[in-house]
């Protein structure tokens, strides 16, 4: 029998993987974008689990909004990535270091 806790733990794990990916990854910006998506999907799982166990549909409606915004976010992220690549011929995270101080 699956309980609410199972879902929450899974969402928590996905969230942690996403956050860890953002901080540990030093190679490729596309992986950063994937981590951001993973975080948002973990949140969606959380909302749906709560919504189901509370018997309240609002959470599921919110998930539709989050999915839509996540799609727009991914589009803008990739667009910025293209601009960045044109400027530097590289999408290495370590080379994003011209701004500091």
């Amino acid at each position: 029998m699956l309980t609410l806790t199972h879902f929450l733990v899974l969402a928590g794990l996905l969230m942690s993987i996403g956050l860890a990916g953002i901080f540990i990854n030093r190679k490729n910006i596309i992986i950063l974008l994937m981590c951001v998506e993973l975080i948002l999907l973990a949140v969606n799982l959380n909302f749906i689990a709560f919504s189901h166990y509370l018997g309240n549909v609002e959470g599921q409606i919110f998930v539709f909004f989050i999915l839509t915004v996540a799609a727009a976010e991914a589009a803008i992220g990739l667009a910025i990535l293209v601009v960045l690549f044109r400027r530097r011929q590289s999408i290495n995270v370590d080379e994003l270091d011209s701004l500091k101080g």
Binding site: M15, G18, L19, I22, I29, L32, L33, V36, I39, L40, A42, V43, N46, I66, E73, I76, G77, I80, L81, V83, L84, R87, R88, L96, S98, L99
Partner: peptide, 21 residues
């Protein structure tokens, strides 16, 4: 500018994720 945009994007998107969580 693209570098600033990318930094802002990644951190901003992560913050939105935390807010939603």
């Amino acid at each position: 500018a693209p570098e600033a945009a990318m930094k802002y994007f990644v951190l901003g998107a992560m913050a939105s994720g935390l807010l939603l969580y």
